[in-house]
């Protein structure tokens, strides 16, 4: 291991990079080893872990998922009932979605509690809001993908809510569905949003989130 690292370090000069990422001090008030209540400062890290878990299980679920009405249901049924570890992988992805919502919410509560959104961290707070919306977008689009009764009708209701927006509601809802009813086009676009658009958004804003945390440091109580 260390020889491989040395080989790479000699050629790419990785050490300063790693130092920048990992070699810094965690202030006492945010360090659970010094202050047990500082565990609330771990919520953000847990969010990152869950999102990585979701990406990993999600990529594997894509192996057996075909986004068309017949195949989507049959594929999820195949995953659930015929494949080794299928129920477990799907179960982790689904429970992981709930866990992500809970942890993102708790992380946000921690930031509110410690007033960490204040000057100079306003921008990072807004990036955090975008990330919250992204996670909710994942939940909403992912709910349709199994194409069972619950998926279909919950999405129908969800998209119908958009219709009530004045002036542009009907058009927006049709654009979301790809037509006047939830159907094949809806499934494909929800799938593409779920596995391409939102992950891209997630990666970009997560990078910004972490960059700002490292630039600005962890907030101190004032």
């Amino acid at each position: 291991m260390s020889r491989i690292y040395k080989f790479l370090d000699d050629r790419l000069n990785l050490s300063p990079l790693l130092k920048e990422i990992a070699d810094h001090q965690v202030p006492d008030h945010a360090n659970p080893l010094k202050t047990p209540t500082a565990l609330i400062y771990c919520f953000g890290g847990i969010c990152l872990f869950i999102l990585l878990l979701q990406i990993l299980t999600g990529v594997f679920l894509m192996l057996y998922y075909v986004p068309s009405p017949d195949n989507a249901y049959a594929g999820v049924n195949y995953i659930q009932n015929e494949l080794a570890f299928g129920g477990l992988v799907r179960g982790i992805h689904r429970v992981g979605a709930s866990a992500a919502v809970v942890m993102v919410f708790l992380h946000m509560m921690r930031v509110v509690l410690t007033g960490s959104y204040k000057n100079p961290r306003e921008l990072n707070w807004i990036v955090g809001i975008v990330l919250l919306l992204t996670v909710m977008g994942f939940c909403f689009t992912g709910y349709l993908l199994p194409w069972d009764q619950k998926a279909y009708w919950a999405t129908t209701v969800g998209v119908n809510m958009v219709e009530s927006i004045p002036l542009v509601g009907n058009f927006l809802a049709a654009a979301l569905r790809g037509g006047s009813e939830v159907g094949m086009l809806t499934l494909v676009r929800f799938y593409v949003v779920h596995v391409m658009f939102l992950p891209a958004l997630l990666v970009i804003f997560l990078a910004a989130h972490f960059f700002m945390v490292r630039r600005q440091g962890i907030s101190r109580p004032l």
Binding site: I46, F49, I50, L53, P69, Y73, V76, N77, Q80, G87, L88, R90, G91, I92, R94, V95, G96, S98, A99, M103, P146, W147, D148, Q149, K150, A151, Y152, W153, E181, V182, G183
Partner: peptide
Amino acid sequence: AVFAATVLAAYVWQVPLEEMADP
């Protein structure tokens, strides 16, 4: 800890697949 809890919850709280969507 979160991973262990997630796996446990996935077992206990089995993911239901209902009947196929019927528009």
